[in-house]
Design a protein around this nucleic acid. Structure first.
Length: 422
RNA sequence: GGUGAGGUGGGUGAGUGGCUUAAACCAACAGUUUGCUAAACUGUCGUACGGGUAACCGUACCGGGGGUUCGAAUCCCCCCCUCACCGCCA
């Protein structure tokens, strides 16, 4: 969430910038400013009364020690009224603070100045393109047909065991998954990211820390007996490593990478573009996470985008980078670049990575801070990106590389698969 | 699952109602000393909110929440978590 300080000090700017995300903040920001003023005044009088009470209690203690029982009892009588006032004020302060938090979590992050105007996915700006789209014959097969033909992925079997969206990978299909995971992790390590193996289920506090809760509660699987959530991305456990942490400036930027299975309920998204591997409830992904100083976070973002580009290049896939427009960005992001690869048989661009700078929006809730030269703790910036999500990469690899002799594996991946053709 | 012990600052850990402004040690940082390293010595060393141009002042925080009391890290109640041993088990 945005910091109260920033909102109250930059009211007009906040409203103006939120408009790019098509969020009308005029009324809600006004409420925040008003509540904050109330908060200050209540706290000021609460503090004054508490100070008086503390002094009085101390004096009573002294009087008792000196054996002045009568005077002590007189002083005691005076505290009752003060006590009631303190109780009332602190109840009011709690309520104001709760109202403020409730409002703050409904305000999205401010988009960076470079975010293009726009409402929907079509308004995103193509930033860069690479690779070549292969010429496939007319009878080229979509990946779900190829998966069946070569017995790589069994979607029906997954339905039997679990349900739709939980495919079973078999033989070279399974080995391809394992190869991609190792390929991505090795590349990330070589690029300086520390490999992490996090838990796949998290507690409520972690869900709140990265912002999945409370807004996206329905998108996560919930193990209600233990009140734990299956992670929708490794971002959640990895970023939460830094919850309630004050880092030293010298430790920044923190660069972590993690593979995890990801679980998403995808409630409400049935029926549209969900065939085959396009949208799943369980999938594999390697994530990269950075924690950085504010003044360096956009350099970090640039590096992350450049890094992801090396992956799609090595996989010889046709790709493009989109700069997301205000309307298509996530709630928490300040600037997002999406990577898409072209799936030549479906003739569609598929999103395989989303790289974002959250600035201090996530760090504020996480309470992830760092101490610099001046010894003052201040909020870090957090960033993350997929590097990469497997299913759509697999879809594109299968479709784009199909030949009459079988499916060709890109050279960079062969050491990992142990085979050149499927 | 059973039994027991615990949760205090960056870490270890003392503190059983007011002398706590949370001791002491370690780590960290600055300085002195020093041929270098090390050691020694001195000093600094929490977070948040509010007030103030500032130095600074006030308030809150000892796992979380409630209660008792003029006053709670300390007493009472509820919850959460951790550790140890036993049982089960990859």
């Amino acid at each position: 969430m945005l910091t109260l300080k920033f909102i109250t000090e930059n009211k007009e700017e906040v409203i103006r910038r939120l408009a790019k995300k098509h969020f009308d903040g005029a009324e809600i920001i006004g409420q925040v400013v008003e509540l904050d003023a109330k908060r200050r005044s209540v706290q000021a009088s609460l503090d004054a009364e508490s100070a008086e009470m503390n002094a009085l209690s101390k004096a009573i203690g002294e009087l008792f020690k000196q054996g002045k029982q009568t005077e002590a009892s007189e002083a005691k009588a005076k505290t009752a009224e003060l006590k009631d006032a303190i109780k009332a004020q602190s109840t009011e302060l709690d309520s104001i603070e709760k109202q403020l938090i409730d409002i703050l979590v409904t305000i999205p992050n401010l988009p960076h100045e470079s975010v293009p105007e726009g409402r929907v996915a079509e308004d995103n700006v193509v930033e860069k393109m690479g690779g070549t789209i292969p010429e496939l014959p007319e009878d080229a097969l979509p990946h779900w047909e190829l998966a069946k033909k070569y017995d790589l992925i069994d979607f029906e079997l997954g339905v039997k065991i679990t349900g739709a969206g939980f495919p079973v990978y078999k033989g070279k299909g399974a080995r391809l998954q394992r190869a991609l995971i190792n390929f991505f992790l090795d590349n990330a390590r070589e690029a300086g990211y520390l490999e992490i193996q996090p838990p796949y289920v998290v507690n409520q506090a972690s869900g709140y820390g990265t912002g999945q809760l409370p807004d996206k509660e329905g998108q996560m699987y919930h193990a209600n007996l233990d009140d734990l959530y299956l992670i929708p991305t490794a971002e959640v456990p990895v970023t939460n490593i830094y919850r309630d942490v004050i880092l030293q400036e010298s430790e920044l930027p923190v660069k972590n990478t993690a593979y995890s299975a990801c679980f998403r309920r995808e409630a409400g998204s049935y029926g549209k573009d969900v065939r085959g591997l396009n949208r799943l409830h369980q999938f594999d992904k390697v994530e990269i996470v950075r924690i950085d100083k504010p003044e360096h976070s956009y350099d970090s973002l640039k590096e992350m985008v450049a890094y992801v580009q090396t992956l799609v290049d090595k996989l010889e896939l046709p790709w493009r980078i989109l700069r997301l427009c205000g309307g298509d960005m996530s709630f928490t992001s300040a600037l997002t670049f999406d990577f898409e690869v072209f799936s030549a048989a479906q003739k569609r661009w598929l999103e395989v990575s989303s790289v974002s700078n959250f600035e201090s929006y996530q760090a504020n809730r996480l309470k992830c801070r760092y101490k610099g030269e001046d010894k003052k703790a201040q909020l870090c910036h957090t960033l993350n990106g997929s590097a990469l999500a497997l299913p759509r990469i697999v879809a594109a690899l299968l479709e784009n590389n199909q030949t009459p002799e079988g499916i060709r594996i890109p050279k960079a991946l062969v050491p990992y698969t142990g085979f050149e053709m499927i």
